[in-house]
Simulated assay, not measured.
Amino acid sequence: MPAFVGAVKINSIASSAIFHIGDVYSMAPYSTAKTFAGGGSFNTGDGIRINLGHSYTHVLDKDRIDSSISANA
């Protein structure tokens, strides 16, 4: 469905980002990433106190292929 779009301000776009205004059939990224992090890694805010003692992040990824982007080139 067509739409009217007012002013758009873009501060920055990463190299693999998708910026879209209007109708779209399919959107696909040109890069992927996998992040491993232990407990308490992505906490944000003021005055956060975290005590995890001994924290370990064990990763076992046998297939090594999670997001194929070969068809997006």
Rank of each mutant, 00 (worst) to 15 (best):
S68P: 14
K62G: 09
D66M: 07
V59I: 13
I10D: 06
I21V: 15
S31Q: 07
D66Q: 13
H20Q: 11
H20E: 14
R49T: 09
H54D: 11
T57K: 02
H58E: 00
V5L: 12
F42P: 14
I50A: 02
S41N: 07
P2R: 01
G38P: 09
Y30L: 08
M27Q: 09
M1G: 08
V59S: 03
S12C: 06
I18L: 04
R49C: 04
D66A: 08
R49Y: 05
H58G: 01
D23E: 14
L52N: 15
V5A: 12
H54W: 10
V8H: 10
T32K: 05
F42M: 04
M27I: 11
G38S: 04
D46C: 01
T32M: 04
Y30N: 07
M27F: 12
H58F: 00
H54G: 04
K9S: 11
M1D: 03
I50R: 02
V8I: 14
K62V: 15
S68Y: 14
D46H: 01
F4P: 09
S15T: 15
A28C: 08
H54K: 08
A17Y: 05
H58D: 03
V24D: 12
S70K: 08
I13E: 11
V24H: 07
P2S: 04
G53L: 02
A28W: 13
A17S: 09
G53F: 04
S67E: 08
G39Y: 10
I10H: 08
P2A: 02
K34H: 13
V5K: 02
S70D: 12
K34V: 01
I50K: 02
N72E: 03
A73F: 11
A71V: 15
A73Y: 14
F42S: 09
I13K: 02
N51A: 07
N51Q: 06
S55A: 14
L52E: 10
M27G: 04
N43H: 04
